[in-house]
C-alpha cells in the first residue's frame, strides 16, 4: 500500500478490482495544509481512462508487476522504444508515459524501469531525480540569488520547468520527476 501522495506516474494501482496504470499525478493543497492528489488513470483491462481525486494520506493498493531496468532507445511514433541490458526492445505507448514524456530525450542515459502487465510493457518510471539542460529562459530580472524568485525555463526535450531566477541558458538542473519541481543547479 502507498499513500496517494507517494503514487507516481507509471505505478499500477488496484481500484474496484481492476488494475489501473497511473498516467499523471497532480498534487495541490487544500485548506489547512491538507494535500489533494488528482490521478489520471488508464484501466489495463478495458483500455479506458478516468480521473480520480484522493486525500494525500489515502492508502492505495499499488500492485507489484514485473519490472525491468531499461534505457530509452528511440521514438517510433506513437511508441517510445526502451531496451534492456540484453538488447531486448519494448514499445510503450506515448499516452502511457504521462508526464514522463516531457523528460524523454534522445541519448539520455537515465536508468528507467519499464513495467509489464500480461507480457506487455505498460508504463515507464523515471529515476526520482534527473538532470537536464536549460535551453531557454529569460535572463534574471532582479539579480535574485535567494532561490525564492522563480521563472519558467525550457529544458532539452521541450518540457517546461519553473526554476530559480538565477538559472541561465546552458545550466544543467536537477528535477524531481515526481513533482516536476526544480531542485537545484548542478
Amino acid at each position: 500500500m502507498k499513500t496517494a501522495h507517494e503514487i507516481r506516474p507509471g505505478n499500477v494501482i488496484m481500484l474496484d478490482g481492476s488494475p489501473w496504470v497511473v498516467q499523471k499525478t497532480e498534487t495541490t493543497r487544500s485548506g489547512r495544509n491538507a494535500a489533494i492528489v488528482k490521478l489520471k488513470l488508464k484501466n489495463l483491462l478495458l483500455d479506458s481512462g478516468t480521473e480520480q481525486t484522493f486525500k494525500g494520506e489515502d492508502k492505495l493498493d499499488d500492485i507489484v508487476l514485473e519490472r525491468l531496468d531499461c534505457t530509452y532507445s528511440y521514438f517510433a511514433d506513437p511508441m517510445y522504444v526502451f531496451m534492456d541490458e540484453e538488447y531486448n526492445q519494448y514499445d510503450v505507448e506515448a499516452d502511457n508515459l504521462g508526464d514522463a514524456a516531457a523528460y524523454i530525450v534522445d541519448g539520455m542515459e537515465d536508468q528507467c524501469q519499464v513495467t509489464f502487465y500480461n507480457g506487455k510493457a505498460i508504463s515507464v518510471e523515471l529515476p526520482v531525480h534527473i538532470v537536464r539542460e536549460v535551453i531557454y529562459t529569460e535572463p534574471s530580472a532582479r539579480g535574485d540569488t535567494s532561490g525564492k524568485v522563480m521563472k519558467p525555463a525550457t529544458i532539452t526535450g521541450g518540457g517546461t520547468v519553473t526554476v530559480a531566477d538565477f538559472v541561465k541558458v546552458g545550466d544543467k538542473i536537477e528535477i524531481d520527476t515526481r513533482t516536476g519541481e526544480f531542485k537545484k543547479r548542478v
Binding site: D16, E26, K38, E51, D58, K59
Partner: peptide
C-alpha cells in the same frame, strides 16, 4: 484554478 478540475471527481475507496 485547479479546483475546477477536481470538483465532482470520484475517489474509489478500498
Amino acid at each position: 484554478d485547479w479546483v475546477d478540475g477536481c470538483h465532482g471527481l470520484p475517489s474509489t475507496q478500498p
